[in-house]
Structures are given as structure tokens and as C-alpha cells.
Amino acid sequence: MTEIVRDRIDVALTVNGEPVEARVPAGQHLIDFLRLELGLTGAHASCEHGVCGACTIRVDGDAVRGCLMLAAQADGAEVWTVEGLTDTGEIADLQAAFVARNALQCGFCTPGMLVAAQELLARGGAPSRGEIREHLSGNYCRCTGYEAIVDAVEAVAMARAGAAAQEGGGGA
């Protein structure tokens, strides 16, 4: 164990659209690399066990647990955190809905929750409340009781589906 921790590995990846090159301890988890080395403290570590979803980030298009993946495994990957998704405006409507609906209290779960919700929303269509609850059932929130989160995600899904229909529908 000790030896593995001491080993260092060179990685090159993009994080939030910017190139990153680093020499990381072989045993360092991606969430710790992002938080400690890059100062990206938006995603949080909570269970460090893959259970709670607080560390959820996007790696090569998928929502993944930053506490289960090693930084070394992210070599060559494209990583997005809530900070980057904020800068690009990709989840601006979802963030606005979370604020309007008060779908966060302490906000500790929120960055992970947003990445997980955006993964579902990106599939398009209008998921049912049950589907939203199912999709978010790996993201733990101790404050809200989830209903406001489901409301916010549902509202964004409907708004995006409506916008897509209008775009696609043209004059029909």
C-alpha cells in the first residue's frame, strides 16, 4: 500500500476545457486531485466510498464518482466539474431552477446533484418524476427531502423539451 501511494505517475488531461499536466501519487483519487491540486473545490468528498454522489463529476461524457476513480486513470480524459459547467453556461437553466425552487439547502450535495441531473436531462425528452427520482437515487441529500430537486429537474426537462419542440417544429 505504502509503495503504491509513494509511486508517482505523469498524467495529461483536460479539465473544464483547459489542458492539465501533472505528476500524481498513484493512489490519489481524482476528486482529491481536483480539489487539492487544481483548487476545484466545487465537487465534494463525503463518503469516499462511491455511495453518496457528492463527488460526482463528468469524465468523457459520463457522470462518475470522483472518489472511486484514480487521478492516474484520468490520463487522456476530458473532465468537467461544476465550475466548468458554470462557465460554459451548459447548466445555467438547471442552476437557475435549483435557486428558484430552493432545491438546495446546505448545498453540499448540489454540485454532484447537478452533474447527475444534467446527465439525465442531456438524454432529452421529458422524464417522469419517477424516472428523475430513480436517476438521482445514487445522490444523497440529507437536507431537502428531494422533492424540490425533483421539481427543479422536472421543470428544466419540460422547458428544454418545449424549446426543442419549438426549434424542431418550425412552422408545423
Binding site: 473545490t41 466545487g42 461544476v82 465550475e83 442552476q95 438546495l104 448540489t110
Partner: peptide, 19 residues
């Protein structure tokens, strides 16, 4: 009335002790 601290938290700009 909306919470003044909520936009910060949804953008990952919270400042928790471990940050």
C-alpha cells in the same frame, strides 16, 4: 424571496472548511 447565498452554492463557489 430567493436566498442570496444559493447562486454561489449551485456554482460550486461555496466555502466549506475543507475548501
Amino acid at each position: 424571496v430567493p436566498r442570496p447565498n444559493a447562486p454561489r452554492l449551485v456554482q460550486g463557489r461555496g466555502r466549506f472548511v475543507d475548501d
